[in-house]
Design a protein around this nucleic acid. Structure first.
Lengths: 143, 143
DNA sequence: TAGATAAAAGACTATTTTATCTTAAATTAT
DNA sequence: ATAATTTAAGATAAAATAGTCTTTTATCTA
């Protein structure tokens, strides 16, 4: 469904949305430690998110990364598109390159509907709503 | 979403469901040629489906493979579970191993609902319905 | 200005997935 | 029986994904 890199990217953005981190510059190494991810691997994913306009970063002492926009303006869908690309929401489920509305594969219609629902789920899941949910339920970000 | 092997497996089963092939023993090599897949790669996927009870096979001259059950008794979900396993319908979307109803991740509730819809789609898509659809619309199985 | 810090970049390794090539085993037909 | 055929099996290769290690570059602080 989502690549491991994408999962780490979403986890990172959720982590940066929590009150403890929000508005601060956070070191990639401390994110990696909190989430139990390899620091250098995460730094590549973070850089992808920086290039994609989801995060900002600065180097050097007291450097770190932070969310590039307001929580309400970052959708989970943005993160997925930056890391995994749009293929999940574009490609034919059965891999037929010629599949389209006029020449649909057997799943075209139904998968089209489900895909819209999935996209809506990821669009509506903005970081403010996710952070709220995490706090309300006292969730821990943990593997 | 689905692995390439799983896509090939589903394509193969659909191919075997069409009137031209139904009830016959079909050589893997001719399936592979029709679908544009590497014959030896497909033969491994086919063997997985044989072991999983979806297909039957016999070796030797005039050998080949065929569907192990009635079209109405083979769900796309069966094929997916045999090839990709149940992880799509079990694992936490965000990769949290401790995610469950009592300690849900931020997507647990919504993803749970979408996952049920996806499972239903793959359950309801039995090979008879798919074959019917392919014939009604004069679809070609083509890449 | 110098040293410390932390992201960026590059080279490298490991694992999984996808795919190919060759050989073995089973079945049929002659 | 023997030869031809076809799946099964095994070894190998290529590509994508996941992950590590080292060096470079930018930034802050003393």
């Amino acid at each position: 469904m989502l690549s491991q890199s994408c999962i780490y990217g979403i986890q990172t953005c959720i982590y940066l949305s929590l009150p403890q981190q929000l508005g601060k510059k956070v070191r990639v190494s401390s994110i990696a430690e909190s989430l139990g991810i390899s620091p250098t691997f995460l730094s590549k994913i973070v850089f992808t998110l920086v290039q994609g306009g989801v995060l900002c970063s600065t180097r050097g002492a007291n450097g770190g990364v932070w969310l590039a926009k307001e929580l309400s303006e970052i959708q989970t869908l943005d993160i997925i598109k930056v890391i995994d690309g749009p293929k999940l929401f574009k490609d034919c489920l059965l891999g037929f390159s010629g599949c389209n509305d006029k020449k649909p594969c057997p799943f075209h219609q139904q998968w089209g509907q489900e895909r819209i629902r999935l996209m809506a789920m990821f669009q509506e899941s903005t970081l403010d709503k996710i952070a709220q949910k995490v706090n309300d339920l006292d969730l821990r970000i943990q593997m």
